[in-house]
Design a protein around this nucleic acid. Sequence first.
DNA 1: ATAGTAACTTTGTATTACAAAGTGCTTTAC
DNA 2: GTAAAGCACTTTGTAATACAAAGTTACTAT
Lengths: 100, 100
Amino acid sequence: MINPNIHKLNKAFESRVRLGIMSVLMVNDTVDFNTLKELLQVTDGNLASHNAALEKDGYLHIKKEFVGKKTLTTYSATKAGVKAFEEHLNVLEKLIKKID
Amino acid sequence: MINPNIHKLNKAFESRVRLGIMSVLMVNDTVDFNTLKELLQVTDGNLASHNAALEKDGYLHIKKEFVGKKTLTTYSATKAGVKAFEEHLNVLEKLIKKID
DNA sequence: ATAGTAACTTTGTATTACAAAGTGCTTTAC
DNA sequence: GTAAAGCACTTTGTAATACAAAGTTACTAT
């Protein structure tokens, strides 16, 4: 009988929105707020709170700057974020492989 | 820019406990309550409610019988459950593959 | 009579997701 | 110069969820 070892899954990445944020940031170094919002199809308030949660966990770096005279917020995964997400994916992958 | 397509992820399988239940049931035709409880390391109340949720979605079949004079509850994935879970895993797999 | 197993259900708490509305600041349109 | 609109939130409120712990029903073993 296999043991799914579900406790190794990272709670921070259980939400699909945060799964999406991290996925985007594994392929792209940075994303800005509005691109992320469009990709994930979420409301801005919702996105902001997920970003805040990931930042609080130390997985997301938030950078605010001015481009011209407009504010621009860009996000990137921290090293800890990359590591934690990769581990999470490994656990998922093992789960999937056992099944196939 | 990749699109993680997170809305194709099935909400029913977002919880790690339910992810675990389905994983076990993709490899084993049936599991009984106590084996599942041990594998997933959850309290019995918690497990019962996750099972009920999956049954309500039509993904889990719950069978109660007597073995000797003891009750025995065994669980199996329905066809719809297998299909839905496989689709969910496909979405996850695509997500992971894009990243690797 | 007591304790134990089985599989819950109930109760209660804490966390979460999310939408919608509001905020403060800035730019562009008329 | 007032209005509208963009940016990236914060606040507010609601509904769903996770989970533990305790209670429950029905049996069995001692």
